[in-house]
Amino acid sequence: MENIKPEKITYVSDDLTRLLRDAGYLELCACIQCGTCTGSCPSGRRTASRTRSLMKKVQLGLKEEILSDKELWFCSTCYTCLERCPRGVPVTDVIISLRNLAVKEGYMQEPHIALCKMFYNTGHGVPINEEKWKKLREYHKLNELPPTTHQYPEAEKEIQTLLKSTEFDKLTGVGDYEKKKGEEES
């Protein structure tokens, strides 16, 4: 892949070119649209989502069309397409980077925002948020709280410091940004 210079990808939009260059995904330029990815995709079996088309759209630089489409979130990241691609395109990784870009542009699924809130508030994507989960742990002869952020409030603070430091709170509208939004609306 060393022979392909980013400058040669003239047909890709500026933003997407930058994304691909930063992420080191020049391999995508080698995509020959064979369709192995689509043929391997368990999500495409039951939806209209077509990985091959998505890769083509990236090459064509159809940024808004890609990022605003909820189909970008239909991939369960099973990595079968990445393993099978005969041109070595890290397809799944490209999709993950596209999702990062979609989030930056404000395209996020509601349930995913809820997950970010739990992550920020507790350090867990799936926290102990009901008494029954403590009781279930005790029933299985474990401490009612695991030795994670749940048992250590200072660890929970560490997570919040990091999420502020990377501006994840601003990006996903959690923590102080959730409060600000609430104040604006009220």
């Binding site: 979130w73 369960s76 990241t77 993950i96 999702r99 990062n100 989030v103 996020m108 995913h112 997950l115 970010c116 992550f119 350090g123 867990h124 994507g125 799936v126 030795p147 994670t148 952020t149 048992q151 250590y152 200072e154 660890a155 560490e158 997570i159 990377t166 994840f168 990006l171 996903t172």
Partner: peptide, 15 residues
């Protein structure tokens, strides 16, 4: 004091 890994499908996909 360990936390969520963070989950590759969601949090990696966000940032």
């Amino acid at each position: 004091g360990a936390s969520c890994c963070p989950a590759p499908g969601v949090f990696r996909g966000f940032d």
